[in-house]
Design a protein around this nucleic acid. Sequence first.
DNA 1: TTCCAGGTGCATA
DNA 2: TATGCACATGGA
Length: 283
Amino acid sequence: MKYTIEKDKIIILDKTEFNPKHILECGQIFRYKKLNNNDYVVVSGKEKAEIFETENGYEIITKNIPYFANFFDLSNDYNQIKNKLSTQNETLKKAIEFGYGIRILNQEPIEMIFSFIISANNNIKRIQTLVEKLAEKCGTNMGDYFAFPTLKQMQTLSLDDLKNMGMGFRAKYIFETAKKLEGIDLKKLSEFDTEKQLEFLCSLSGVGPKVADCIALFAYHNMNCFPVDTWVEKIYNQYFAIQQIKNRNLIRKNLVAQFGNLSGYAQQYLFFYKRELDKNQKK
DNA sequence: TTCCAGGTGCATA
DNA sequence: TATGCACATGGA
């Protein structure tokens, strides 16, 4: 994708491989805010960026250019990925045409772990509220926003703190995982193969197969993962299944068999497509 | 009032 | 190994 870098901004000269709405509203990140039509503020870890639409693309304004160049996966060629996937399946082709500007973000492992523990049996709106509360409660004050808490900061929270924030039955999971991660180098996990990565993640309290897939996908860019949640279950049974399947493990297996090392990309296009369609139908 | 949301953990057979 | 249920909370 065409982009250039100036002092404090990344200039994107493309509107087909980069679309802030598609990128931010496809459920992979919870800390963003819409300013105007296609303008957004996004917070990741302790960094912040603002995105503004221009005539020929977008400008990403930030104090940390390298961080957000990597965050937005700018060196990756999404046209090639989209072409490959579009030929594989008609529904996916439609989903890609719909969410053409999606990119899979490179996010912080610690942020993904706790955010997706919160996501269990929850809706995106409420997940956003809870993640924000967590940052406000114990994350570093950066002036006009709060950084996502470090592990040390997470460990200062009591079980009651978490319950009082509205974490519900996930409070215990967060509390236990914060303890368990002590002394563990999460960067090392990127060197593991998929099986080992998921095995470790599933050993954390509140992390099962679906949440582990999300963490592997969004924190470690592991494209062999295909998180199957309630939405993917719906889309699978609507468009892919010969016969209806409820077993999510089996659905995952079938989808990974079909999309291989492009599974993570395929999943995001399908997830965004299905959710937006359902949202619009309700209106 | 009931159902549902980017599910997980645990008991039971 | 597979199935079923409880688990907080808030919006529709």
